[in-house]
Amino acid sequence: MAAILHIRDLTKQFGGLTAVDAVSFDVPEGGIVGLIGPNGAGKTTIFNLITGVYKPTSGSIEFRDRSIVGLEPFRIADMGITRTFQNIRLFKNLSVFDNVLTACHLSANYSFAEAILRLPRFRTQEKRLMAKAEELLDIMGLLGYKDLIANNLPYGLQRRLEIVRALALNPSLLLLDEPAAGMNPDETEQLMRLIVRIRDDFKLSVLVIEHHMDLIMGVCEHIIVLNFGEKIAEGSAEEVSRHPQVIEAYLGTREEATDA
């Protein structure tokens, strides 16, 4: 399968600290790829580099064979890459519906003048946006909470709303940053099914950072392991879990293990 995202020798330095060190990997079209590693391994930094929040020190990021290095985050979003955040970043004081409706804006192109004069194009497009937001909420089981202020939503559903908001942009690559953080096993199970379902229904490729190994092992077809900014292993769940360096990064060396 062709790669939708192509990362080569990606490096990011903050002053003297190398947060990401010459990392290379691909995300295949339609694939679900897991990005794992201990805290501080540089996972979120890679997300920030892909989405344009940070500029890489060196290396290349190609999305559909086009370099996206140096583009503004909103342009990268426009091209079809979107993400969720480790610490949820919803439009807190807006209703669930308005959160999604706002993100639907890329599906409309009426101008300021058309909006202010309430011209026909404004009306038809606005109707379409509302229908789209409603439909997305319905598919994702949040329609019942449509009028609730996002901040009042239970934690697990806030994470889900963030995914819905990301889907509203019609992305072709979705980056999920610890989507299961703070979820109980039951909710994690639900989330796993959800990730697979949206990949199939929305024809997406997914790159997911997660610490819940059940989730990673359960849904990811390919796993990349980072430690101290470097890629230490890559492969299927089984391959990765047997890799000596991965075991060392997560569990410590054999001597340490016997000590404990």
Partner: peptide
């Protein structure tokens, strides 16, 4: 509401 999230949502 949330500048970073707005950027990521494709807003200039």
């Amino acid at each position: 509401e949330e500048e970073l999230a707005a950027q990521i949502a494709g807003i200039d």
